[in-house]
Design a binder for these strands. Sequence first.
DNA 1: TATAATATTGTCAAAAACAGACAAGTCAAA
DNA 2: TTTGACTTGTCTGTTTTTGACAATATTATA
Lengths: 99, 99
Amino acid sequence: MRFGEKIKSLREQSGLFQREIAAELKIDTPMYSKIESGTRKAKRQHVLQLVKFFRLKEEELMSIWLADQIIDLLKEEKYGQSGLLIAGKDLYPSNNVWQ
Amino acid sequence: MRFGEKIKSLREQSGLFQREIAAELKIDTPMYSKIESGTRKAKRQHVLQLVKFFRLKEEELMSIWLADQIIDLLKEEKYGQSGLLIAGKDLYPSNNVWQ
DNA sequence: TATAATATTGTCAAAAACAGACAAGTCAAA
DNA sequence: TTTGACTTGTCTGTTTTTGACAATATTATA
């Protein structure tokens, strides 16, 4: 699940309108709409505000937000999978899933 | 190994000067120096030129170049590993390394 | 159906980030 | 101490991103 879908489902579960979340983030409704649809990227600060607002664990939203950016980076790339594994090995060598 | 180190080692193995690679890429030597040191990012086009120049398989250099960008994205991130795994699962679901 | 509220899309100017270019610096070898 | 290779710093023009607003579309409800 991409970041936009995630916050959309959180919002709908809470029975809130975009306007209310947008106000919380101090952005206008069109901007928030674009974040939900994935045509604009949320700022890190917005993610943290949403974590507090929806009372989530930071990792739950941050990891999806980061994944989103990686997906955007690799989605048209032929060698994305190799790149991902190399990055994983470099950053988190103690995890042996990267081979 | 990061992208800059990689092309530096390829260059040194070939016994060439930065000036020669820079000319090939049609950039000046300071710019190329910065790419080797990782303070500037190579363009995709540069990577492809280097693949031809050093007669490499495209995947060998492209995957490192992509990994570099992922590393820059995640290196200060607390939840980078989770993000990486989520992205992997989303992009390449048939590979089960992402759990 | 009419209308009101919600949500989406399009556009544009301002701001931020980035690339290219050059000058000036360091460093090592001769 | 001079030369050549490399690095660092800075400036400017370009590209990209952002925020704001207008306009349109969609949905809910009277």
